[in-house]
């Protein structure tokens, strides 16, 4: 979903012990203006720096001067989630209830169950929400729904769960219209949503292994176009693929990756060919074909790995892709590497 507010699901698993803060029941104050420090924190989160440390203390916050009739909005204790919510509520007096999701965004935490029924019920009791408002309604982001059994929350706390729009920025619209347009209920995954995920993709351990491997390919056929081809294969998978995702033909991530990777690899294969006129033809072809197979499989693998960052890949679909394309990629990579080594060393 775009892991909903837009960030990759695949952060490192944290110790799952719930941390209780002594201030749990104390009402905290917040405001809707974001400071430079907040923006710096968002930047760090986006590039994957200290990924598990973008935490907000769970509990009840006041925004403006809420009274007993004011609305209650629920969010995760990830700074990007909390800040998106409070900055969208500029000028609205309300309460914000922050659940302890261990610094994970709403969508991913809902999938894990930490943005879940039990935590919501627990948090409503811990902050004594019924003492602060006289209505019985909490507004949750729609993407929290995979973790929340709304009728069970009502049974256990008396509070009715209302699912608001997907994006916090659509909240003012929602509050004015008292209902959510079908369009605001759908997850969009536009080019900006995809682009902000790219920096985190660069932390893929697979990519680091590939770059290290590429350095081992010394041989008299290796020139700057060979190095360029390695980098281009990785760049295609990590940068071009997310950007071009909706426009690449076919539905499967891996099939899209094969096409993109194959195209880029062919370009560099051609460049290598025209740049080395003096080498025996069979060695040149071996070097190019081996590189082509290896690079294409790398790009396709990185494309498959983007499934978790996307907002629409299903578990069954990804399993099927691994089952069908996995062996193809493996054979291409092994055969390509063999041909490459032979043509360079013989």
């Amino acid at each position: 979903m775009d892991c909903k507010s837009t960030n990759s699901c695949c952060s490192n698993e944290k110790d799952s012990t719930t941390t209780f803060h002594p201030d749990d029941a104390v009402i905290k104050k917040t405001e809707s203006t974001l400071t430079f420090k907040n923006h710096l924190d968002h930047f760090k989160a986006r590039i994957g720096l200290r990924r598990n440390e973008h935490l907000v203390i769970p509990g009840l916050y006041t925004l403006g001067m809420p009274d007993e009739n004011s609305k209650v909005f629920v969010t995760a204790n990830y700074t990007l989630s909390f800040d998106a919510l409070r900055s969208a509520l500029k000028g609205i007096d309300c309460f914000i209830l922050v659940l302890d999701t261990q610094g994970i965004n709403v969508w991913c935490a809902a999938g894990k169950g930490t943005f879940g029924t039990d935590e919501l019920v627990h948090r409503i009791d811990a902050v004594k929400l019924h003492e602060h408002v006289k209505h019985h309604k909490v507004i949750l982001p729609q993407l929290g729904a995979p973790g929340i059994i709304s009728f069970e929350v009502k049974e256990r706390t008396g509070f009715k769960v209302e699912f608001g729009p997907v994006k916090a920025s659509d909240l003012p619209d929602y509050l004015n219209n008292r209902k959510v347009d079908a369009e605001l209920r759908r997850v969009r995954f536009g080019i900006f949503d995809r682009a902000v995920l790219i920096p985190v993709e660069f932390r893929s351990p697979f990519m680091i292994v590939m770059i290290l491997l590429s350095l081992f390919f010394f041989g008299d056929l290796v020139n700057h176009y060979t190095i360029g081809g390695w980098m281009a294969a990785i760049f295609s998978g990590l940068v071009l693929f997310p950007l071009l995702l909706p426009w690449l033909p076919t539905k499967d991530f891996t099939a899209k990756g094969f096409q993109l990777g194959g195209l880029i690899a062919a370009v560099f294969g051609y460049l290598i060919f025209v740049d080395n006129p003096d080498v025996e033809l069979w060695r040149m072809l071996g070097h190019i074909i081996g590189s082509f197979l290896l690079w294409t499989s790398i790009t396709a693998f990185l494309a498959l790995n983007f499934t978790g960052s996307s907002t629409f890949a299903s578990r069954s679909g990804v399993r099927k892709e691994i089952f069908i394309y996995g062996p193809v990629m493996a054979v291409m990579a092994v055969f390509g590497t063999t041909v490459l080594i032979v043509s360079n060393l013989v």
Binding site: C9, C10, G111, P146, F151, S204, F253, L304, N305, T307, G308, S309, S310, F312, A313, S314, R315, S316, G317, V318, R319, E321, I322
Partner: peptide, 17 residues
């Protein structure tokens, strides 16, 4: 609440798998 829908839910994330 009626149990009319069934789906095997999980993350569609190849890296996680």
């Amino acid at each position: 609440s009626e149990g009319a829908i069934a789906v095997e839910s999980g993350v569609g994330c190849a890296a996680a798998m």
